[in-house]
C-alpha cells in the first residue's frame, strides 16, 4: 500500500519535472523561431498585433536583400580567414609550449608555469591600450594582423589545458621514441601530437569559436566595410537599418547559421570542450 503511493508520487514528480523542463525548452527555442519567422516576413507583417508566427508568404528575398545591402559573403570569408588563422596559430604555439612544460625537464620550468598561471587573472582591458598603441605604431590597424598575429604567440588558457592533457600521456612512449633515435622535436611530432588529438581538437574548436564570435577586436581594429567580420558587419548593418526588423533578423540568421551547422556536425567536441575547460581548471 505505502509502496504503491510512493510510486505514484514519484510518477507525479517526474511528470511535473517533465512539464517544467518542456516549458523551459520552449522558452529556449522560441527566440530562434521568432528570429526565423521575422526574417521571412514582409515589412508590414513585423508590426502586426497580435503578431503572426507564420508569414503569409515566405519572403526569402529578404535574405537576397541583406546580401545586396552589405557584402555578407565577404564578411563570411573574412571571418573564416581570421578564425582559421587564429586556430592554426593557437594550436601551433600552444602545443609547442605545452610540450615543453609537460615533457621536457629544464631549469626554470616550474617558474615559467607559475607565471603562465598568474597571467590568467589579468583581465584583457588592462593590456588593451598598449596593444592597440603597438598595432597602430606598426600600421597594422585595418588589417587582420592584430587579430591573428597574437594567436601565434600562445595563450595561457590553452597552454594550461594542453599541458594537463599531455601530462597524462605515458612517458614510456617518449623513452621508446628516444631509443628509436627521436629528437625532442620527433617526440613532439610523432608521439605527443598524434596522441594529443582529442585535446587539440577541443582547443582548436574553442579558439575557432572565440575568433568567429569575437566582436571587440574587429570593432577596434577594422574600419573599412571590406575588412569587416560577420559580427562587426551585423552591428554595422544594425546601424544602417535600425528598424527594418525583417532584414535585421535575416542578417542575424545568416550570421548564426554557420555556427549552428558547425555545432550540429561536431556536437561531441563542443560538449567535450566545455567540459574540459570547466572541470580541469
Amino acid at each position: 500500500m505505502r509502496r504503491g503511493s510512493h510510486k505514484l508520487s514519484r510518477r507525479l514528480f517526474l511528470l511535473l519535472l517533465y512539464a517544467v523542463l518542456t516549458a523551459g525548452a520552449v522558452v529556449m527555442v522560441a527566440p530562434f523561431l521568432w528570429m526565423v519567422s521575422t526574417s521571412l516576413k514582409a515589412p508590414h507583417e513585423t508590426f502586426m498585433l497580435p503578431p503572426i508566427w507564420i508569414p503569409e508568404d515566405f519572403r526569402f528575398e529578404n535574405y537576397a536583400e541583406v546580401f545586396d545591402r552589405l557584402p555578407f559573403f565577404r564578411f563570411l570569408l573574412n571571418t573564416a580567414t581570421i578564425a582559421g588563422l587564429v586556430t592554426f596559430g593557437v594550436l601551433l604555439s600552444c602545443s609547442l609550449t605545452a610540450f615543453a612544460l609537460s615533457r621536457l625537464r629544464f631549469r626554470g620550468r616550474d617558474l615559467v608555469f607559475y607565471i603562465l598561471l598568474a597571467t590568467m587573472i589579468i583581465p584583457a582591458p588592462v593590456t588593451l591600450v598598449p596593444i592597440f598603441a603597438i598595432m597602430r605604431r606598426l600600421e597594422w590597424t585595418n588589417t587582420f594582423l592584430p587579430l591573428v598575429v597574437p594567436a601565434f604567440f600562445g595563450g595561457a588558457f590553452p597552454v594550461f589545458l594542453l599541458r594537463q592533457f599531455f601530462m597524462r600521456i605515458p612517458r614510456d612512449l617518449d623513452e621508446a621514441a628516444v631509443m628509436d633515435g627521436c629528437s625532442a622535436f620527433g617526440i613532439y611530432w610523432r608521439v605527443i601530437l598524434p596522441l594529443g588529438k582529442p585535446a587539440l581538437a577541443t582547443i582548436g574548436l574553442i579558439s575557432f569559436m572565440g575568433a568567429w564570435n569575437d566582436f571587440f577586436g574587429p570593432l577596434i581594429y577594422l574600419y573599412s566595410i571590406k575588412k569587416q567580420t560577420l559580427t562587426l558587419g551585423l552591428a554595422t548593418f544594425q546601424g544602417y537599418y535600425a528598424t527594418d526588423w525583417h532584414l535585421l533578423m535575416a542578417a542575424t540568421v545568416i550570421v548564426t547559421l554557420p555556427i549552428l551547422l558547425a555545432f550540429l556536425f561536431s556536437q561531441r567536441f563542443f560538449v567535450e570542450g566545455i567540459t574540459m575547460t570547466g572541470i580541469k581548471g
Binding site: L92, C94, L96, T97, F99, A100, L101, L104
Partner: peptide, 8 residues
C-alpha cells in the same frame, strides 16, 4: 625546453 616554449 626554452626553444619549444619560445612562442609563448
Amino acid at each position: 625546453g626554452y626553444l619549444f616554449a619560445m612562442p609563448w
